[in-house]
Nucleic acid binder design. Structure first.
Lengths: 209, 209
DNA sequence: CCGGATCCGGGTTGATACTG
DNA sequence: CAGTATCAACCCGGATCCGG
């Protein structure tokens, strides 16, 4: 954690969270909430385990991450963001928004985790008919499914399958991403191989205009 | 520029601009506009000249920075952000906002350039009386003065001295920063050594409530 | 003076193996 | 599960030098 030695807010921020991997660790904690060490490592493919341990210790020292013991049935310690750590959300959001155009070219062997879609979902989706009954859409594109659902006007994602989804979306990550960010029309995505089962209107209700 | 190899917008953004110094180079170009190589280096104390050259070449290859020949009288090439590069402003802004609390502790030998104040100014100052005649406030805290002035409702900064400033603010960078961000009352700052000459109301008109 | 290129020492990162 | 240990490769920072 070498300092830039500049009395500038952005430079001082980068002093703390500008190291390689640090912001991606914050992304994981923002998207997944309190996590075990091993789960973090699973969500950060490519990181060396010693680096993850180092970074977590630094983040703890800085007061951005806290360690806590999980409730009794589970024997594990959880890592969670402190309130000050949560305040990094706008940074991740700004980075993600700037990076959206980069998602147009396909993964080329990049790793992918379905819950990462929570980032574009939060940025681009909104419930255009909050007065109607809530909807749930299951997305199958990574190893594990993700559910996009509405809850009193807001749109959220969570890991896992839906009990009784209004629609199920299956296909390549770049097709899903393009549809969710509005850069590709649903019809064209289907023509390119995206599979949409169930109630198409439920999905349209959430998509950007 | 090693890739994280993750199909995630934030990770891909960091693939491009996550290297050390890269975002600070963007900060310089955002705050100063088109600049010569040597001026960039002056605004990035601590950077090794080869690193600056490397980063600029990368940014050029990525289409975030463009090189242009300065108009005839001057014999120099200028570096400027492309539109896509300008789109990084929200990233710098988010970082700067998160970093503001870190400015509370004094510089401790950190380098400082007065025009860096443009960042907090844009975030925190606004003209509460745009119908009145414009005001100009000169700030003397670094090697070179900076002017904060209003122009049709907006608050801007520019390098240099003011012809006929409504007020002049002189003092340590951390006092100036604390006042501009509203974390320290003007009266208390003056008690701590800040010097305010001229029309106090002109400054109050711009400060956060 | 401007705009770099080159070289070198040391620190950081990354891959793998290993451990309580 | 949650790391530590080790080591090679790479990147960074500082100094120096060089062509317009």
């Amino acid at each position: 954690m070498r300092s830039y030695g500049q009395y500038c807010a952005a430079a001082r921020a980068l002093d703390l969270i500008g190291d390689r991997w640090t912001l991606l660790i914050v992304r994981e904690l923002l998207l997944r909430g309190p996590s075990r060490y091993t789960d973090l490592r699973e969500g950060l493919p490519g990181i060396a385990t010693n680096l993850l341990a180092d970074r977590l210790r630094e983040l703890e020292d800085l007061g951005l991450v806290a360690r806590e013991d999980a409730p009794p049935p589970i024997a594990a310690t959880l890592l969670r963001l402190t309130p000050r750590g949560e305040e990094l959300r706008p940074v991740i959001t700004a980075l993600g928004q700037w990076g959206i155009p980069l998602m147009a070219d396909p993964p080329r062997g990049d790793e992918f985790r379905a819950y990462w879609l929570a980032l574009p979902v939060a940025l681009y989706l909104s419930d255009s008919a909050p007065e109607k009954p809530p909807v749930a859409i299951e997305v199958r594109t990574g190893a594990e499914p993700v559910v996009i659902e509405t809850a009193d006007g807001a749109v959220r994602t969570r890991a896992g399958a839906a009990d009784d989804p209004d629609a199920v979306l299956t296909g390549a990550p770049e097709l899903i991403a393009a549809v969710l960010t509005g850069s590709l029309a649903l019809k064209e995505a289907v023509a390119k191989g995206l599979k949409l089962e169930g109630d198409r209107a439920a999905l349209r209700r959430l998509l950007p205009a």
